[in-house]
């Protein structure tokens, strides 16, 4: 089985994000970048499938600036077999990213694409679904459990949806996007880091994919959200409930 795992380089989720004064983007000085947490969960799941099934190959792919090599090396150190970086200095909109990934899927013919449900920068939650639709593949988003049939030809996915857990099944190839509770990603081990240095990390310029000017959505301005100011501290439960009753009139 071949599993393709697209990953994205994003600011560390623990970082305090600040918008540049001119609204052209976020401040990136002194910001640590990491693998998008949902993508890391997707990679972990791919590695577990590989360990359980034997013989599987895990291929990492990212679209991003050249420094994304760092995140791909981390992924290789975690256990992915090889990696590919589509070098793009500017941010792509979800539809364009999905177009590039579609061409990679067509070239690599994976049985399964395991992706994060959303990246924590743009929060669009679109790429996996658009990719699936453009290939006319089935999808299971927001996965909290992924199980394969004995012949490995079908997958049953438990999904976190409104009001409970849903299970869907489909024959491969298909796309699964991960939610938070699918697994707990491993850390790269020292031997893993050593091995990763020798693994293939291929770079391809974005121009090779012919997607220039294809953006369907453009970002024009970023601004900080309206600030909510801290109210007051109360001393007792009686005071709190009293205020909710008389001042806020909510009880």
């Amino acid at each position: 089985m071949k599993i393709l795992v697209p990953i994205k380089r994003v600011p560390d989720p623990q970082t305090n994000i600040a918008v540049k004064p001119d609204g052209s983007g976020i401040v990136t000085d002194n910001v640590k970048f990491v693998i998008n947490p949902f993508c890391e969960i997707a990679l972990e799941e791919a590695l577990r499938v590989k360990e359980q099934q034997g013989g599987a190959e895990v291929v990492l792919v990212s679209i991003g600036p050249k420094v994304t090599q760092e995140q791909l090396r981390t992924g290789l150190a975690m256990g992915a077999d090889r990696a590919m970086l589509v070098v793009a200095e500017e941010e792509l909109d979800p539809a364009t990213a999905a177009t590039v990934l579609k061409k990679i899927v067509e070239a690599e013919s994976p049985d399964l694409v395991l992706a994060g449900k959303q990246s924590i920068d743009d929060d669009a939650n679109q790429v996996g679904q658009i990719l699936a639709s453009s290939l006319d593949w089935p999808q299971a988003t927001f996965a909290s459990k992924v199980e394969f049939s004995a012949d490995k030809k079908e997958v049953t996915v438990t999904r976190e949806v409104d009001g409970g857990l849903e299970q869907v099944a489909f024959a491969l190839p298909g796309i699964v996007t991960t939610d938070l509770r699918l697994n707990e990603p491993r850390y790269a081990s020292l031997p893993g880091i050593m091995k990763a240095r020798k693994k293939e990390l291929k770079e391809v310029p974005l121009a090779d994919y012919g997607v220039a000017g294809a953006a369907k959505v453009k970002t024009h301005k970023m601004a900080p959200p309206p600030k909510r100011s801290a109210g007051r501290k109360v001393e007792t439960v009686q005071e709190l409930v009293g205020l909710l009753h008389t001042e806020a009139k909510l009880i």
Binding site: P11, T219, P225
Partner: peptide, 10 residues
């Protein structure tokens, strides 16, 4: 975007 830390105009 950015977990609600940014409001993007698109």
């Amino acid at each position: 975007t950015y977990a609600g830390n940014v409001m993007s105009t698109v």
